[in-house]
Amino acid sequence: MDKVFDLEIITPLSVLYKAKIQHVRLPGVAGYLGIKAGHEPFVTTLTIGEIKANLENNDVKYFATSGGIVEVLPNITTILVETAEEATEINLERALYAKERAERRLAEKTTKTDINRAKLALAKAENRIKVIKKVKPE
């Protein structure tokens, strides 16, 4: 077993998750990155994607996030995100609906800001759908 360290996932609304883990994989702006205990201190921004945590008891937890920031210190990794949901908590129907709506908006000809917003919404919805499939394979 790998050495364990603390992981905290905090959103503006709550401390979403707190645990001892062996490894975490994060959606960094420049691609996915993995963190183990004793990692050198560093800070980076996160983008839309999946957080995968390998727990002390070898369980694996998945979270969908819309991006934020992470601070890595040797014994504690703190993830501050705008939003995050554990895979088992995601409402698949809602994600599918959001995806459909975003696609419809993109198909219509609208202003540039609307398109950007729709694209972002689409990316978030697709991410949720992807993450939920990790725990509920069809």
Binding site: G28, T45, I69
Partner: peptide, 17 residues
């Protein structure tokens, strides 16, 4: 946490972050 902390690394870079 670590008194003998070395420097932070930043990605992409500190100013952007």
């Amino acid at each position: 946490e670590s008194k003998n902390l070395v420097e932070f690394n930043f990605e992409p870079d500190a100013v952007k972050i």
